[in-house]
Every structure is written in C-alpha cells, then in structure tokens.
Simulated assay, not measured.
Amino acid sequence: MELFREHDLTLQQYNVLRILRGQQSNAIKVSDIAERMLDKNSNTSRLVDKLLVKGLAERTSCPSDRRAVDVIITEHGLDLLAKIDPLLEEWENKMSATITPEEAESISALLDKMRKSDNN
C-alpha cells in the first residue's frame, strides 16, 4: 500500500507498531507480539529489528526472563502512527463507500478461504 511505503513501513511493521501502542507504554515480549499478529507467517523478530533500526521501537531487558527480549514503542513510533492513522481511516472510508456490504462479505469469505489453504 502506497500509504505505508511513503512512511518507509510495511503492513506487517505497521501491525507491530499498533500492537506496541496497544500496550500503553508497557513492554511486551517478541513472542507475545507474534501471537497477536494478523499475519501469523510474519517473521516477528525481523520486523521488530527493522523497527528498532528506524527508531520506532526500543528493546528492554525482561526482568523475569533474561533470555527474553521486551519491546516498547518510542515517541517517534507513536508520532508516526498519529500521522498514518487518519490517512488510513480516510482510505478505509473511501473503500467502504465503493464496496457494498455483500461484496465485503464475499471478499472476506475469499480471504478466509485463501488463509485456510495457505495453512495446509
């Protein structure tokens, strides 16, 4: 999607940032992020590494498990989401205005079918 490319993000990286924002400044383990991902086939560790390089997330050590890595969103990451969210909402509104509820249901069913065949 062009919107994400303009901000040097992928859809999966955006998903990770939204998960991190949902933690409300509480750190989360990479394994917990992976469980919450929309795309279960994503390499979450690699996605987090890219967000770290971009300064959108930070690593912290996990006090309860020194082998685990906790991740937290940075102010820069929150600022970027604040820019993208209204643009994405505008795009979604345009899409929903051109697709009937029946068409949306058909698309959803087809996507579910594709996901099921991908997992087999």
Results as ranks from 00 to 15, higher is better:
5 R>M: 14
118 D>L: 09
73 I>K: 02
35 E>N: 15
97 A>W: 03
44 T>G: 00
106 S>R: 13
96 S>V: 11
69 V>L: 05
14 Y>V: 00
85 D>L: 11
116 K>Y: 04
26 N>F: 08
9 L>V: 01
80 L>H: 02
111 L>C: 08
22 G>E: 02
2 E>F: 05
18 R>K: 13
14 Y>T: 00
89 E>R: 14
67 R>T: 13
80 L>K: 12
86 P>W: 10
101 P>I: 04
41 N>P: 01
32 D>M: 05
114 M>N: 10
84 I>F: 04
67 R>C: 08
118 D>S: 12
56 L>W: 05
94 K>R: 14
33 I>Y: 04
18 R>A: 05
108 S>H: 15
25 S>L: 04
38 L>D: 10
115 R>L: 08
21 R>I: 05
37 M>Q: 05
111 L>S: 12
102 E>H: 07
117 S>Q: 15
12 Q>N: 15
103 E>W: 08
24 Q>L: 08
10 T>S: 15
34 A>V: 01
105 E>K: 14
96 S>G: 06
30 V>H: 00
76 H>Y: 12
48 V>G: 00
34 A>Q: 15
5 R>Y: 08
13 Q>C: 03
68 A>N: 04
35 E>A: 12
40 K>G: 05
24 Q>W: 05
30 V>W: 01
70 D>Q: 07
80 L>I: 07
3 L>I: 14
105 E>Y: 15
98 T>F: 07
57 A>R: 01
38 L>M: 11
79 D>R: 05
19 I>R: 00
85 D>I: 13
41 N>E: 09
93 N>E: 10
114 M>E: 14
111 L>R: 15
46 R>T: 06
4 F>P: 00
86 P>R: 07
47 L>N: 01
32 D>Y: 07
72 I>M: 13
67 R>P: 02
65 D>P: 03
77 G>N: 03
